[in-house]
């Protein structure tokens, strides 16, 4: 992947897209091979270390904190950026208060960026699905990743929300300078915003190229539609 790129990972169900995500982010160990990010191997790192090395992610089946408010969900994302020690928190030193104010301000900015400011006090569990997805994206952004990995961000969204999502992904790249790796089934999203598309089938990469190239690739058509359509 190149800095500032939007890459989509597509493929039929069971092709291994989410598994690839989980291997990269340290949830499952790879059976072979190396994963390098920003010049360093991230193989064998625990999930929180992978995050610290600059990779943020969202999950296909949402893993927000249902019993925390929207604001607190985002604030947890700032864990790595928090410079206050536990001891200073226990006795509530002025330095810890200043740090907390700084984090609150940054969280407020993120909430506004994602249009969540109005619902920031609600518990995440009571939000609509599309809002929960945005909370998860905001939370991941709070950890200041260089690369964002989004696992089916458009799942369950209506067309208007999908348009907003497209705009949001572009803004993450253009305004925040993030590199973006996307798993998505919504072809509108994929074809619209990707610089590059990687197609997977049965655990391996079968094609790679610009959206136009991939669309015409016979191997891709075969994987998606079966061999007869390709012939």
């Amino acid at each position: 992947m190149h800095e500032g790129e939007i890459v989509s990972l597509i493929g039929p169900n069971g092709a291994g897209k989410t598994t690839a995500f989980n291997v990269i982010t340290g949830i499952y160990p790879p059976s072979a091979g190396d994963i390098r990010f920003a010049g360093r191997s991230v193989v064998g790192l625990a999930p929180h270390r992978v995050c610290a090395s600059g990779i943020g992610r969202t999950f296909q089946n949402l893993r927000i904190f249902p019993n925390l408010s929207v604001r607190d969900n985002v604030l947890v994302g700032f864990t790595l950026g928090n410079r206050a020690s536990l001891l200073s928190a226990l006795v509530r030193l002025p330095s810890q208060r200043r740090e907390e104010q700084r984090l609150q301000a940054e969280a407020g900015a993120l909430l506004r960026l994602l249009g969540l400011a109005e619902i920031e006090d609600q518990l995440a569990r009571y939000l609509a699905y599309g809002d929960q997805r945005r909370v998860e994206i905001a939370r991941a952004l709070a950890a200041q990743p260089r690369m964002m990995m989004l696992d089916e961000p458009a799942a369950g969204m209506n067309p208007a929300e999908v348009d907003d999502l497209n705009a949001l992904i572009r803004r993450m790249r253009d305004e925040l300078g993030k590199t973006i790796l996307l798993v998505e089934h919504h072809m509108n999203v994929v074809m619209d915003i990707s610089d590059r598309v990687i197609v997977m089938d049965q655990g391996r990469k079968i094609a790679e190229g610009t959206p136009q190239e991939v669309k015409r690739d016979p191997r891709v058509i075969q994987a998606y539609l079966g061999s007869e359509a390709a012939a």
């Binding site: 982010t25 949830i27 625990a46 999930p47 929180h48 995050c51 610290a52 943020g56 992610r57 999950f59 893993r63 927000i64 904190f65 249902p66 019993n67 925390l68 607190d72 969900n73 604030l75 947890v76 994302g77 700032f78 864990t79 790595l80 928090n82 206050a84 536990l86 928190a89 509530r92 810890q96 907390e100 984090l103 939370r139 991941a140 709070a142 950890a143």
Partner: peptide
């Protein structure tokens, strides 16, 4: 504090919390 928030986040979803560096 931030620690308390992270604790409550971990209580809700440990993997989700670790994905943002907890």
């Amino acid at each position: 504090s931030a620690f308390g928030r992270a604790m409550r986040a971990m209580r809700d979803d440990e993997l989700g919390a670790s994905s943002v560096g907890v």
